[in-house]
Nucleic acid binder design. Structure first.
Ligand SMILES: [Zn+2]
Ligand SMILES: [Zn+2]
Ligand SMILES: [Zn+2]
Ligand SMILES: [Zn+2]
Lengths: 173, 173
DNA sequence: CTTGACCTGTTATGTCATAACATAGACAAG
DNA sequence: CTTGTCTATGTTATGACATAACAGGTCAAG
């Protein structure tokens, strides 16, 4: 909860006080590097879509992204946003949060990982949590049934530390 | 893969050969008992909606359920299905599979559990897997960030045993 | 009988997502 | 230079999923 500098790959950065301008810039830089590595073309719309997602640690609906893209002179029609977002997701630069029908920037692009999302139902912050143990447990459960896991969605809804504290201390309104 | 009798609470029953008529009947009976315990009123529409979900081990869209309800003389409008389904979900008799925008009957109603779904991308079978270890791992990951988990969606897309075997043996078409 | 809680049904609308087609630049082959 | 092909971007139109708001019906408590 203190504003110590947060390292780039810190999980749960969404719930920490931090210099978000730096956080977003750094993540964008890493995304660009990751895209280069994969030979994925981060064109202007795509890049701008990612920047938009990076503006906040929450998930944005496709139409919300679309509006901002349109405001920046890109196309105004749904496919414009959906295509850019699909590209970002396919290339591991963003994730889809199914619970919210929305998208969020990946906070550690380049690293292969199974995203685990913690979604605050009050402030709508979205954090990517440490996934490895969850993935392992899931793989074991699947293996017991002979099921081969290819992709996963793991999402938890609840309270982030800040909103939890607020709920406990003063429930005035 | 052999058709040994499957006990009612077996996890992953969706992927086993079994007497599904019996499976569905038994699950419905347990659901009725669970509803009674909770004082939840399993009215005709709701009960019929659950029966519809229980017809197959897959997830059905709300409009698919709606069509069948309408065919049985219930209302033809979306809220009819959504309300019945919402009731079932709220009372732990069904689950929502967000990846599919669809609903599936709970295979062990009454027991509190965090559902973990294994979804076959080929035959669309949906199984509820053993959740406890996954939940534990998720809780730990959340606790590290001070996040309080209230509800979860854990869904894995992949290949069920049968479809996996088919993919391995003969890939003709 | 009246009230109030709850269930079921309706109309209308809102939100999310994609199919199908048109255009424009990048670039290699001819 | 021209042509074909690939990929990206844009459009129109439509489909799929979900809910708000209201109307009537049942039934037990008062
Ligand atoms: Zn940040
Ligand atoms: Zn919060
Ligand atoms: Zn069955
Ligand atoms: Zn299958």
């Amino acid at each position: 909860m203190q504003d110590k500098p947060v390292t780039q790959n810190d999980v749960g950065v969404a719930f920490s006080r931090h210099d978000h301008a730096h956080c977003a810039d750094a993540t964008l830089a890493r995304a660009e590097a990751a895209a280069l590595t994969r030979g994925a073309r981060l064109t202007p719309v795509r890049r701008r879509a990612l920047e938009i997602l990076l503006e906040e640690h929450r998930a944005l609906g496709a139409y919300e992204v679309l509006d901002r893209l349109a405001a920046d002179g890109f196309g105004k029609q749904p496919p414009v946003a959906y295509r850019a977002l699909e590209f970002l997701v396919e290339n591991g630069l963003a994730h889809r949060v199914r619970r919210l029908n929305a998208f969020t920037a990946c906070m550690h692009p380049g690293e292969t990982h199974m995203p685990v999302f913690l979604i605050c139902r009050v402030c709508h912050a979205v954090a990517e949590a440490s996934a490895t143990p969850v993935r392992a447990a899931l793989d074991r459960a699947a293996a017991e049934l002979g099921f081969t896991v290819e992709r996963t969605n793991v999402e938890a809804l609840g309270l982030c530390p800040a909103c939890h504290d607020l709920a406990c201390t003063g429930v005035s309104t």
